[in-house]
């Protein structure tokens, strides 16, 4: 027992003195990838979600194709495909890791979240649209002022969950050589294997600390959502 306290002590001291500063070198990459992925992920979700409700069959089927492709394959495969295969396919020498990473995460989760956007808009009571027709609002005004704000409230809890999923997904960018926190951790481990426990524990703690505000945000979203569905 005493031994383990001692060992934990070593880990903690190790963590603070040696590992922490190394990992911190990658934190800005992790956060950048996360923020950009979230922005583009929501953007794709809204565009695709609305397109799937379009009256135009070409727009609708193209979007469905995108959504099914990205939901049907795995994120890590998409990431590798975007980074290694696309430049080869078009014979272009783009070597932009950030773009590939952000695109993979945001296209993947955008596809999943577009289903939420679509579902929430369809779930808004038909009477709301009818009432806004009776008030002679235009099609766009109906969407902007009446349907969309109500649908948005329904989307919040799921959107919160996907925020955490996207944060977790940022760890994958180390696999295409981006120097995020995991990348620096892996280098540290490969030079000194005995540091592995400290490195990976600290990485997990890092991610958990970043996830905490998102967890609370999700709960907040659930509350707002519950209030929002109150009957009109």
């Amino acid at each position: 027992m005493e031994f383990y306290f001692l060992y934990m002590g070593v880990i903690i001291i190790n963590a603070i003195i040696e590992v922490f500063p190394v990992l911190m070198k990658g934190i800005h990459i992790t956060i950048t990838v996360f923020i950009l992925s979230v922005i583009f992920g929501y953007l794709f979700a809204f565009i695709a979600g609305l397109c799937r409700l379009s009256n135009n069959i070409i727009i609708r089927s193209t979007t469905s194709f995108y959504v099914e492709i990205f939901r049907g394959t795995s994120l890590i495969v998409q990431l590798f495909w975007l980074y290694y295969a696309i430049p080869m396919l078009f014979n272009i020498g783009i070597d932009n890791r950030l773009m590939a990473g952000v695109l993979a995460i945001s296209l993947n989760y955008g596809a999943y979240m577009s289903e939420i956007v679509r579902g929430s808009i369809l779930a808004v009571d038909k009477g709301q649209t009818e009432a806004s027709i009776a008030l002679n609002l235009t099609r766009f005004q109906r969407m902007r002022l009446v349907v969309f704000p109500q649908a948005l409230r329904m989307m919040l809890p799921e959107f919160g969950n996907y925020l955490i999923q996207m944060l977790k997904a940022t760890s994958l960018v180390s696999l295409i050589g981006m120097t995020d926190i995991l990348y620096h951790g892996n280098i540290l481990r490969s030079t000194n294997l005995s540091m592995a426990p400290t490195v990976y524990l600290l990485l997990l703690v890092f991610y958990f600390i970043m996830a905490l505000p998102l967890i609370f945000l999700t709960r907040k979203g659930e509350e707002i959502s519950k209030r929002g569905v109150a009957n009109g």
Binding site: K168, R189, L201, L204, Y207
Partner: peptide
């Protein structure tokens, strides 16, 4: 809420 990738590394390496 932590990445499965790092969890795998933890079990495998640490």
């Amino acid at each position: 809420s932590t990445p499965p990738l790092i969890q795998l590394f933890f079990i495998y390496y640490a």
